[in-house]
């Protein structure tokens, strides 16, 4: 009973019982009803009742629509919490089916990453020094694919012409994909040996 809601509930219920008893008494004993004087038109009572209940219904409606959820912030137990596979970022670039235009900084990162990967793969597969691998990269002899060789060759990115920049932007993903395939082939050939 210390809960204010309970107190309100009991007061309302008591008021309701009193009103009900009084109402029934009035209806059962017409003289009491006759003694009660209703100062307004009969319809005002009915309209007032309608307005009151309509307002109460309107107030209760949000409570129904926004019922408290018993859902805690816990992940469901059935699956393992999702973690991405290594290379997800690169996957978004290399494995996208539609045309993708990357900002220059991202293109620079992807190209740099593939260049490093190629050098390390050459070092690992050929057992040579890093400098030798860089030379292979520079002269493009590490692969048969001219697109891949050009992609990772250390040379100035662009001469600044708009057309070349546009070409670079449009064909970047395709060239990166060719390079990735070439370097994977290099590693696979070594594994076969």
């Amino acid at each position: 009973m210390s809960n204010p809601r309970s107190i309100i509930r009991w007061i309302s219920a008591a008021g309701g019982i009193l009103s009900l008893c009084a109402g029934l008494a009035v209806l059962v004993a017409p003289p009491i009803g006759g003694a009660l004087h209703w100062p307004w038109d009969d319809e005002i009572l009915l309209v007032a009742f309608f307005v009151v209940v309509f307002v109460i219904a309107g107030l209760l409606l949000p409570f129904v629509l926004l019922d408290d959820s018993d859902r805690a912030d816990r992940t469901p137990p059935e699956p393992i919490p999702s973690t991405p596979p290594p290379g997800r970022g690169l996957e978004h670039v290399l494995d996208r089916r539609w045309l993708l235009s990357l900002p220059p900084a991202r293109r620079h990162r992807v190209r740099g990453g593939l260049r490093r990967t190629t050098i390390r793969t050459i070092v690992r597969t050929e057992g040579c020094a890093t400098e030798t691998a860089r030379d292979h990269l520079a002269d493009g002899t590490w692969t048969d694919d001219p697109v891949a060789a050009a992609f990772v060759r250390p040379e100035p990115e662009s001469d600044g012409s708009l057309l070349r920049s546009l070409r670079e932007r449009l064909y970047f993903t395709r060239r990166a994909r060719r390079t990735a395939r070439a370097v994977l082939m290099l590693a696979a050939e070594d594994a076969r040996r």
Binding site: S12, A13, G15, G16, I17, L18, S19, L20, A22, G23, L24, A25, V26, L27, V28, A29, P30, I32, G33, G34, L36, H37, W38, D42, L45, F49, V52, V53, I56
Partner: peptide, 17 residues
């Protein structure tokens, strides 16, 4: 009976319930 006062009291009872 058909007292309007009685009806009013019944409607009040309904609302409070």
């Amino acid at each position: 009976g058909s007292s309007i006062g009685g009806l009013a009291l019944l409607l009040v009872a309904t609302t409070t319930f």
